[in-house]
Design a protein around this nucleic acid. Sequence first.
DNA 1: GTATAATAGTTTCATTGCTCAACTATTCGC
DNA 2: GCGAATAGTTGAGCAATGAAACTATTATAC
Lengths: 148, 148
Amino acid sequence: MPEPTSSPVLIDKFWESVPPAWRQTRSQIRRIAVVKFQMTEEQFQVLRRIRKGSASVSALAEASQTSRSAVSKAVDALVRRGLVTRSQDPADRRNVPLALTGEGQRVMDGIFNEAEAWLSAHFERLSPKELEILLQGMEILRKAFLNP
Amino acid sequence: MPEPTSSPVLIDKFWESVPPAWRQTRSQIRRIAVVKFQMTEEQFQVLRRIRKGSASVSALAEASQTSRSAVSKAVDALVRRGLVTRSQDPADRRNVPLALTGEGQRVMDGIFNEAEAWLSAHFERLSPKELEILLQGMEILRKAFLNP
DNA sequence: GTATAATAGTTTCATTGCTCAACTATTCGC
DNA sequence: GCGAATAGTTGAGCAATGAAACTATTATAC
């Protein structure tokens, strides 16, 4: 009898935790991002990651497990709004490095603080022990879904 | 200094794990459900939960953290395809209990097995210890996002 | 008892999210 | 150099979502 652990219980727990948590979070992000900053959730994720450093369409798509075309369109909207700049890499002219403008930085700070506050409110219900397990669990989840 | 644990590290880990894992899973579900069973991911989730027992539009919406209108539409499509039946609760005629038809049961078995196999493949990379932590972590995640 | 509020569900409408496939431009492998 | 691979963009079209208005039914207040 192989794989006794990985089976139905774990998978059911996955269905019952990850999608609902994400839907709830996304819907909250939308409320904040759309209403207060006129920005879609997808654009928020793009801004967030550019701020963190990874800054090419391909890298962003890979990191958020979505398509390059989706990211490209989100970037386009952000550029039109003056929050992000596209530049050129002289070494490889196929690359289009992305960066936040000052305005992009400011918007991101505002939106990020609100999102962080909302998430924190959820995590504050948890004990230190639970927070520790959750942290480890999320790292394991990330690893399990890493590509190759 | 309050809340030293719940802060940026945990939140960043959340962004980097939950949304990508979910996007990847959803895109896979779409490949399976849409291509082989002519069904959307949302309909898959609805079928899945009806099979588990919770069987009213409101309950389904609450469980998957989405709107009643979205669930209602998914149910509608499933009823049209003969996979789900709506019935009436004599005690409270506002309620519309849902149930799988035989065909719905069969489709669900096929699709569920494929989805389970795909998820299992990801979890099989993990050690028993990691699986245990992941299981606990997902339960904690679920609890953290539980409503009140 | 009747008016009012609350609940279950549906429908409509508008927007967002996402993917496929085709396309341009550039660089790599040999 | 030529073909394959990579970075990115664009257009079409469907899937997903949510807000708001609506019907029907039941619970609550008085």
